[in-house]
Design a protein around this nucleic acid. Structure first.
Lengths: 126, 126
DNA sequence: ATTACTGTATTAATATATTGATACAGTGAA
DNA sequence: TTCACTGTATCAATATATTAATACAGTAAT
């Protein structure tokens, strides 16, 4: 994975470690980082981005807990098996969708109306 | 609208003003608060909940900016026309859905696969 | 064991978000 | 005008989140 793929907007209100997480997820999505491939070491990425190593460590720790990467002290971090990842990704997405449904219910939309709206969204967007 | 419909969990990590907003949206969704009906005054709700008036004011200000309620100094706040609300609710929901789509794209899902998954969700859930 | 890398843990500094105290200003009725 | 109620604005106190400084511990090669 190329260091250059990760750039940070320091003026943004979004925390640096969140930006790092998002960039890495993007890299995975485009397959510019593949299964078992090592990530840059915490200190390497930190010095490249000119941020504190703890900030990168926080991003990596989160991704570890999200079951996206694996790692050990002395060895570094690497991307997990993509097969496993597919399953994780699908369940992450399912959770997101359920949260969306909850908000819709809060707003008073019926199941049927919601379904119709979502189908419309698909016709219009992307 | 009944004051008793709004209860706060002070132990929760969710800010009090966010909890107030959510309860009011719920009340609107169940139509326990109807068009043009006045909300409890800031001080009345604050003393009932035993929170600072500014906390309630923050919730009301947010709902005002979300175009859900209207109000003026000296007169209080009241629910807006529901016709207008329907439109607002729909666009709020659309925004939520677009955020969901963005996350899905980040995770590398194609538009078609996403559509299939969403249809499956509707078959299984709620 | 030494060296040169890895990640981890602890604590402090800083920034941001949330809540609170208080004074101010608008509205309408007596 | 006066009164009793509305919401608003400003600033301080507090809590939480984020980043940083530093010391510690694991791994592997020499």
């Amino acid at each position: 994975m190329l260091l250059a793929e990760i750039n940070i907007e320091f003026a943004s209100p979004i925390p640096v470690y969140e930006q790092i997480k998002k960039k890495i997820k993007h890299a995975i999505a485009r397959e510019s980082l593949s299964a078992n491939e090592p990530l840059p070491s915490i200190r390497e990425l930190a010095s490249f981005l000119k941020v504190n190593p703890n900030t990168v460590a926080r991003a990596y720790r989160d991704l570890f807990q999200e079951n996206i990467i694996d790692g050990r002290a002395g060895k570094g971090y690497w991307l997990k098996e993509t097969g496993h990842l597919e399953h994780e990704k699908e369940s992450m997405l399912k959770e997101d969708f359920l949260r969306f449904l909850e908000r819709a219910i809060e707003l008073g939309f019926s199941r049927e109306r919601l379904k119709a709206m979502v189908i419309d969204f698909f016709k219009e967007e992307i």
